[in-house]
């Protein structure tokens, strides 16, 4: 019961701040709401017993990535020339299309998820004498999800090299 209340409460705030993120005019405020949103998502993780994930969520998203967003938003002038506002509705169709595709996706996941429950993964604790959240996550990352994990790290490396090449025009 208590958990359900906490879950719905947190979800409400997550959605509320998500709406504020897209509806606020001031971009800096919007980024701040995004941070709040991330913090509430982290709280949700705690509720689900995934403290490690919660801490990482705060560290990486709230403390790292969004700081860089904030940098960009603060420093780059986002005021656009008046021509850009000539047709305020010209992107409406695109927006609707995107929203529809997201909805479709969510629906698909929901139906697929109900129809065939995900195959039970080996719990780390059964195979390996681990205790606690961190070990479990680490164990899973380096066994069941080794290849996606390595691919992700390769991707990040490529992105980093790309960023350096772009920023440093003459090497």
């Amino acid at each position: 019961m208590g958990q359900a209340i906490a879950f719905y409460g947190l979800s409400f705030f997550i959605l509320f701040f998500a709406v504020l993120v897209v509806s606020t005019k001031d971009t800096v405020h919007s980024v701040l709401f995004l941070v709040l949103d991330f913090l509430f998502v982290a709280a949700l993780y705690v509720l689900l017993g995934a403290q490690f994930l919660a801490a990482i969520q705060v560290l990486v998203y709230a403390g790292g990535i969004v700081v860089l967003y904030l940098f960009v938003v603060m420093l780059v002038n986002l005021k656009r020339p008046p021509e850009a506002y000539e047709d305020p509705h010209r992107r409406t169709n695109l927006g609707f299309a995107l929203a529809a595709s997201v909805l479709l996706e969510v629906g698909a996941i929901a139906t697929y998820g109900y129809a065939s429950p995900a195959p039970a993964l080996a719990r780390a604790s059964e195979v390996f004498p681990v205790s606690g959240n961190t070990e479990e996550v680490g164990w899973l990352l380096y066994t069941s999800y080794l290849i996606p994990f390595e691919i992700a790290s390769m991707l990040l490396l490529v992105a980093m090299i790309g960023a350096i090449v772009l920023a440093k025009r003459e090497l």
Partner: peptide, 13 residues
């Protein structure tokens, strides 16, 4: 914050 002058289309000036 300084309000820089704006040039057309130059978002990253």
């Amino acid at each position: 914050m300084a309000t820089p002058a704006l040039h057309h289309g130059a978002m990253f000036d």
